[in-house]
Design a protein around this nucleic acid. Structure first.
Lengths: 205, 205
DNA sequence: TAGATTGTTAATCGATTAACAATC
DNA sequence: TAGATTGTTAATCGATTAACAATC
């Protein structure tokens, strides 16, 4: 069965929703929907992609849901993450508390600026980009965050792939190319802002 | 006619694609598609939502496309942007060169940390959150970026809306509520990372 | 004129919503 | 048993792709 990728994002939101519930043991799809901002049918459908977690007439056990959703998302364990590019954005991501909190540990950082090499940021030593392949391989790192200028992005991503990385969160604009078996997710801040100005502009026509 | 929101994001990518072309006067939907990574049919369809920009048998004038796409996206002018929250992420966004380059000027910054108030970052003076309403109103700011901790997000967004802001790019998790007429776009870094771990996890089942 | 390529309509595909039998 | 709510199937909606007449 193929699962819509938007369904996966919603599972993340359902997970946060049930995490926040402290005063109940069981919750209905209707209530999850209300709290997370979707429809009850959508909640049931999304959950049903992954199994039968509920009890007709009663709802979903919150305890079970917490456990199962974590499993689905792969956040029932911790993940080591490498970050490439420790400029403004990279440093901010390195310092971002939210990641650690969700079980993502940025343990490795790389940059090509000689002035930054061997400096320690947030407890992480910045390594030269030349060390990337060896370090990623030796430590079997699965996830990388790319926060380099766009000119460097494709090269860095090629290096990461050659080093055995499996999933990449890329902040550099100009969507780089990667083979099918790599999960490459682009976050392009300018495109997001342009969606806003499109909306503002449109109102004026 | 209602235009898919994914179409707008693609328009941004088409715009970048044609911007990068220097050696031709005219380009076909086929070539745009190839460069931007979509199908020719999709390119023509997306462009057709907004007008007839091409010439059958010849293609699209690159000059015209640059002008028209900019107009569609609302980036044929500069926009003043306010940022709320000048922590790690907020500071990085304030320093991000890409915005300025696309015509987005972050001219106003707000924070509630007394130690930061009146400090200058990237040429922008950090103002107390209490000044938000007055400043946003007086300067008719349309766009705000929210980079505060999630506990504060809803309050900040309510303040922005009350101040007349029209579009918000929100980096705080826990999707806040906003009325229909406000364009609220959420970027949730943890959800993106969870899409990656879902993918990694899935491979193991 | 022949070849190329648009703009648009129709066909397909995929995702969301609605409905309801099964069941606690 | 009656009421509630799931899991799933069918209906609807929306977006993408394919096809092609119009036209440069």
């Amino acid at each position: 069965m193929k699962i819509p990728s938007s369904s996966v994002s919603r599972i993340s939101l359902y997970y946060r929703t049930v995490l926040a519930i402290k005063d109940k043991k069981v919750i209905s799809s209707q209530d999850i929907a209300l709290l997370a901002g979707f429809s009850a049918a959508q909640v049931r459908k999304d959950l049903a992609y992954f199994g039968q977690f509920g009890t007709p007439g009663r709802g979903y056990s919150i305890e079970l849901l917490k456990k199962e959703l974590k499993k689905i998302l792969g956040t029932d364990r911790e993940w080591d993450v490498a970050i490439v590019g420790v400029g403004n954005l990279g440093s901010a991501l390195l310092a971002y508390k939210g990641f650690k909190h969700q079980g993502f540990n940025i343990r490795y950082a790389f940059d090509n600026d000689a002035k930054k090499i061997n400096k320690i940021k947030q407890g992480v030593r910045i390594r030269p980009i030349q060390a990337l392949k060896q370090v990623v391989k030796a430590n079997k790192i699965d996830i990388a965050i790319v926060a380099v200028p766009h000119e460097a992005a494709q090269d860095v991503i090629d290096m990461l792939i050659a080093s055995g990385i499996k999933a990449i969160l890329n902040f550099a604009p100009r969507r780089p190319k990667a083979p099918e078996y790599i999960e490459l997710l682009n976050i392009d801040l300018s495109i997001e802002l342009e969606r806003l100005t499109y909306f503002l502009q449109r109102g004026k026509r």
